[in-house]
Simulated assay, not measured.
Amino acid sequence: MRLDELTALFGQLGFPRAEDRERPPRDHVRAVEGAVRAGLSDDELPLELLALEIERRDGAPDLAPFHVIPDLGVRVAFAYWRPGRAAGAHEHSDWTVTAVFHNALDVATFDWDATARARRLVPKRLFSAEAGRVGHIHGPCIHDPRNPTPRWSISLHLFGPHDGPVIEEQVGPVEGLSPPAPRAAEPAPQADEDALSAALASHERECVRRAQIDALARRGAPAAALLARLHARGDAGTRRRAARALGRAEDLDARTVLARRWPGVDLDAASSAGRAELVARCGQRAQPLLRVEAWAAPALRALASAVELRPRDIPGLAEAEQLALARALVDWGTFQPLEAQEN
C-alpha cells in the first residue's frame, strides 16, 4: 500500500469534508484502521511515510503533520517518545487512528462518563501495544500513552479535523486532566541560558533521528537510501548509529581527537549521592549529562576542562572505559570527532 492509496480510501468511504462538523461512521474509521494495519505490515507504506517525515518535518515540533489530506483536513503525523515519557491524560473528541510504529507504548484509558460526573480521572483500562498495533477512537475519549521501555518509541497518528478538548467546557475543571493547550510560557531565558537550550534541542533532534534509524534498521535493503540520508544529516553519534544499520564500521578509537562543542555552555564535575556527575551549565541552569562511580571523578574533571582530547588521555580508566565514556559524550553532542566539526 502507498500513501496515495490510503488517501484515496477516505474518498471511497465518503469521509466528510473539513468544513462539515459531522463525524464519519465508526465502520469507516475501522476501515481506515484496517488499511493502516495492512500497510504497516509491509515496507512500502512505512518507508514512504518516514521519507516524507524526514524531508518535511526535520526539527519541527512533535506531532507536526507531514501530510494533510486535501479537502478533508485529515492530518498525518508521527510522535516520538523518549524512555519514560508520558503524554499526560488528555482528550480526543473527534476520530483518530493511531499505530505503534516502532518499539512499544503503554496506554491508560479513563471512563469518560464517570470522569465527567466525578470531575476527576476515573481509570478504565491499561494495555500494552507493540510495534504494528493499530487502534482507533470514535468520539470522546481520555487516555494517557507512555513509553515504559528504555528505548525510544514512535507512534503514527491520523487525526480528524475537529479534534479538541470539550469535557471541561461541559462540566468544569477535571482533576488530573492535562491542559488542552501548552502551559504558559516560562520567563524568557537569559542570553547565557540560550546556548544550553539550543544544545539540548539539537540533542533531542538527533535522538529523533536515531529513533528513525532504529525503526529503519529492521527493514533491510529497502531502507538503505533513507539510512544514508540520516547518516548525512546527523552528528557523529547519529552517523555511527546509521553506519551500524547499514552494515558499515564507523566508530571511535583511542586516538580519535574529540573537540568540544556547545559553545557558551560550561562543563563541571560535581558530586551527588556518592557518585560523580558531569554537568552542563549556563547561568543558573544545569543539565546532568553523565553519572559515574565516585572513583572516576578525575576522568570527569579532565573532560570538564578539556577543549580537545583523545579517549586514551582520559585519566584513571581502562581503554574500554575510556571509549565508553567518549561515546557517551559524542552521543550527547558535547564532543565530536575533530574531522566531524564542519557537519
Score class of each variant (00 low, 15 high):
L158I: 12
D268S: 15
E193L: 04
L63A: 14
P180K: 04
S305N: 12
D111I: 03
L158V: 09
P24G: 11
V122N: 04
A195I: 08
R229D: 15
G316P: 08
A249D: 14
G34Q: 13
R210Y: 11
R56Q: 05
R281K: 12
W81G: 09
S305D: 14
Q12I: 01
A108H: 07
R17D: 15
A87Q: 10
R183A: 15
E277W: 13
V307Q: 15
P123H: 01
L300Y: 01
F101C: 02
P263R: 05
A299Y: 05
V257T: 12
T149A: 03
A245T: 09
L303A: 07
P16A: 02
G237E: 07
D251R: 14
W81D: 03
H162M: 09
R125P: 02
S272I: 04
L325D: 13
F101V: 03
E33R: 15
A276Y: 10
R17A: 14
L105N: 00
D144A: 04
T238N: 07
R281Y: 04
R233I: 03
D113G: 06
P123Y: 03
T109F: 06
H102P: 06
A217M: 08
A191M: 01
D194M: 14
D111W: 01
R30P: 10
Q12G: 08
V166T: 12
E293C: 04
Q190V: 11
P165L: 03
D251E: 12
R209Y: 10
G274E: 09
L303T: 01
L63R: 15
E169I: 00
R327M: 00
E44A: 15
A108S: 08
L317G: 02
L200K: 03
R301A: 07
H90N: 05
E91L: 09
A242C: 01
A299R: 05
S155F: 10
G39D: 06
P165A: 15
A306D: 02
L216W: 08
Q287F: 10
R119L: 10
A225Y: 02
R281P: 00
R244W: 08
D163P: 07
A326L: 15
E91A: 11
R119A: 12
L3K: 02
H67S: 05
A242Q: 03
A320P: 00
F110G: 00
N147D: 14
L226S: 09
L252F: 02
G34D: 13
S41T: 12
A249E: 09
L50H: 00
A340P: 07
D27R: 07
A228G: 15
G220C: 00
R120Y: 00
P173Y: 07
A114W: 02
R30M: 15
V68K: 05
S178C: 10
I154N: 08
G176V: 07
G247K: 05
G176Y: 00
G139H: 01
D27C: 00
P16R: 02
P140R: 15
P165I: 08
L323R: 06
L258W: 01
H231A: 14
D94V: 13
H102N: 06
A236Q: 01
S202K: 08
L267Y: 10
A211F: 12
L200Y: 04
R21H: 05
R233K: 11
D20Y: 02
V107C: 06
L289N: 06
S155W: 04
P65M: 01
D94A: 13
F159A: 15
R75N: 12
K124Y: 04
A129S: 14
H231N: 13
D266N: 13
L338S: 12
A276D: 04
D42Q: 14
I154D: 05
